[in-house]
Amino acid sequence: MQKFKEHSDAKRYKHHVNDLARDIRTNGQLTPLTVVAAEEGGSYHLASGADQAHFVPTCYWLVDGHHRLEALKKIGSDAVQVEVVPGKGFADALDAARLANQQVVQSLSPLERTENAWTALNLERDTYRRMSVKTAAATFSVSETTIKRFRDAVRQEGIQSRKIEPKAPRDKVEQQLQAYWNRKSTWGRFSIMPWHVLKRARREPNNPISAGAEKHRIKMEIAQLLFGEEGRHDLKLVVAALIDMGREAERPDGAAYLESKYKPKIYQPVTTDDDAAESDHVDYHQLGLEVARMRAEEVESREPGDF
């Protein structure tokens, strides 16, 4: 499904750029690209009569109009209309890009808007974190419920890490949330974690693992144990052994049979080629049970008068 989605997105992107190229070739570029000045390569100049120097950029960040730029390249245009918006540097470019969605011809999907809002709330600067729920929802074109879920998720994380009081007074709730969220260890961790991943991780403790998932995990553990150490076992023999165990497991008493046949026995020395005994891990519990059983059998087998 991921490969299909990537192919579908690439196909949609190609068609969109082709449509823009035809429109620009016919009607010209009607909408300028939006750029923000980059700090790299620029310099400060003091104009005549000015009391302070102004920054003259030589490079710009493209924040809106990536498809239009590709269309202009496609038709071989050597000039482009741009609009320079206030700001300087990568952080301001990110802010401008997030606020330019209303002019995007190919609008974001609801999931993309949600992920966009979550990423913005976990930037180093706390501009969006300090916004009210209503303002943040309007800024990123998401529902107020979505913003409340973001805030609740962060608050629950803070409660679990004992950085936020679960029963804090109302006037301190927002203060503690902002203090915890502004920690680099908090927003830094969430900035690399998509919202859908965090949401799924929060649901897992309440949802039991399915039987299919549990079986898959068991098979992974078996495979990692047998194939993990390179050279420990011959791979063909490992596969043959797994096939034999599969046949044995199909017996009516498969589980009991496998347990009785392959359950670890009491310690016995392993004889090497030079007849030297190698030490191995000893199951003292099993050894004690075995000794107790042997003594019980000896007592039962005694005849009256035996010593």
Rank of each mutant, 00 (worst) to 15 (best):
Q176S: 06
M220R: 12
Q175M: 01
R200V: 02
V154Q: 02
D244K: 14
K261V: 09
Q156I: 13
E174L: 12
I192E: 11
N182G: 05
Q175G: 05
M245W: 09
W181G: 10
S132V: 02
E144V: 09
M245N: 10
I222P: 07
E204N: 05
A211P: 12
R247P: 05
R149W: 04
K172N: 07
G231M: 01
T139E: 13
V197M: 02
I164T: 12
P208H: 04
S141T: 10
H216T: 14
R125M: 03
I243T: 13
S132F: 01
D253G: 08
M220G: 11
K134H: 06
E174Y: 01
L226V: 05
N207P: 12
V142W: 01
E144Y: 06
E157L: 11
S143G: 15
Q175D: 09
G158A: 00
H216S: 14
P205Y: 01
T135D: 13
Q176W: 00
W187F: 12
K134L: 09
T186N: 04
V197C: 00
E259M: 04
Q224H: 13
E229P: 06
E229K: 15
F150T: 08
A241P: 10
A120I: 00
G158C: 03
I159L: 09
G254Q: 02
A213E: 15
Y257D: 03
Q178S: 07
A255G: 05
E250W: 13
F140M: 01
R130W: 07
V173A: 02
L198T: 02
N122A: 02
S191G: 04
R200G: 04
L177I: 03
F140W: 02
V173N: 07
I147R: 06
R155D: 03
L177N: 04
R203Y: 08
Q156T: 10
R170M: 08
F150E: 05
T135K: 11
S161I: 08
P169G: 13
R162W: 07
W187A: 01
D253V: 03
W187L: 02
I209A: 15
A211D: 15
Q176G: 07
S143C: 11
N182D: 12
F140L: 07
I164L: 04
K184P: 08
K163C: 14
E259C: 05
L121V: 03
K261W: 04
R217V: 09
L121G: 04
E250D: 11
D253P: 03
Q224P: 08
T186L: 00
V238T: 15
P252M: 10
T186Q: 04
K148W: 00
E204C: 02
D152K: 11
A136K: 00
E174C: 01
A223M: 04
L237A: 15
V197N: 03
R129G: 05
V154W: 06
